[in-house]
Design a protein around this nucleic acid. Sequence first.
DNA 1: GTGCTATGTTTGCAGTGTTAACTTCGCACC
DNA 2: GGTGCGAAGTTAACACTGCAAACATAGCAC
Lengths: 201, 201
Amino acid sequence: MTATATRSTYHHGDLRAALVTAANAMLEEGQPLSLRALARRAGVSPTALYRHFADKEALESALAVQGMRDLFADLTAGRPGRNGTAGPAMPSTRKEVIELGVRYVRFALRRPELFKLMFGRECDVENDERVRAAAALHDHLAAVMAQVFPDANADDLATAGWGLAHGLAFLHLDGKLPKDKPRAVDRRVRAAYAAILPTTN
Amino acid sequence: MTATATRSTYHHGDLRAALVTAANAMLEEGQPLSLRALARRAGVSPTALYRHFADKEALESALAVQGMRDLFADLTAGRPGRNGTAGPAMPSTRKEVIELGVRYVRFALRRPELFKLMFGRECDVENDERVRAAAALHDHLAAVMAQVFPDANADDLATAGWGLAHGLAFLHLDGKLPKDKPRAVDRRVRAAYAAILPTTN
DNA sequence: GTGCTATGTTTGCAGTGTTAACTTCGCACC
DNA sequence: GGTGCGAAGTTAACACTGCAAACATAGCAC
């Protein structure tokens, strides 16, 4: 199947990357992330992993950080440079802010196990890379909000906008809101944002 | 200590209740909920639990259901029968809706492990008691919203209000938003709601 | 008193994360 | 170009987990 190819060399080459790839695959398949199963999948002994990660949490942290990057890219990509700026344009309308929320929830539902790993655990350290990634997300959102709702407190609005997306994502993930087709979920998210978000001017 | 009293009788009397109590205590103390540790704590053999719960998930489900009741009580209690109705009055102002969110987040931060147990797992079955409890919460909130914001779609607004509280709760729990003193958290929650929630005419 | 049955216990299994001691081998160095 | 050193992988073992099967106890109906 995947990378279970029984290698001939004693040393693996790039086990760390292989482990991350295999781990992501396991998450994608909804399997519980067990180090032994992971090692089996990578065709390596159960403890080889410890040469590359301090412990299980370190591995999960690495996965989470990459996940944060993916999420951030997901949120900022797709709308090629409009309104004169270089690179992807920031959302500049209320509608686009709502679509940001839709994308956030979509990401969570598309990669649920990864999303839970990114958020559903307390990241221990204060100056963790994951915390910084979270702060980056918040800052970006605040910049967007400042542009779209110039009269409101952008920071508070960013917290609210993020909180709402995050809550809707988790409520859907855990089956507290009806788990219907993606389209229906999109609609519900849009409706929620539309109902609560201030109207521009 | 707790209920570790080495009993004299072979039969326990009410082991089920004792297990639930002990489990809640362990959650409260932030200890990982292990069946063996739980049994030790109740002064009983490691597998005695299986006479009262099908498996670990059944126990967790029981805890979660009670937690939902507590949360619901927390949200509906405290404001003795105003505006003529029997029983506790429903929130009828924008400010009171915001306080609902504050209470929700407070509950999550006061009993974090229980809260994660209530929400952080997918409840398996479709017609699970937990799902019904969630629906009840949503309905109650919709009724509140209908009263406070008669012009808006109450259902969408309920989804949004719940989603926001839920997201803020989890973001705080997982350290994605600064984990300062309860007062500061209260303020942040209020600010977020105030920034995003429509004003009543 | 005699069984029946609900409740608890003992034993054991398969799985988990993790450490310690050992093996293999790529690569820098004289 | 052999030599050794250290990075990378292995094996064995430990303590822990949830859980099933077989067994022991005792309250309660008859």
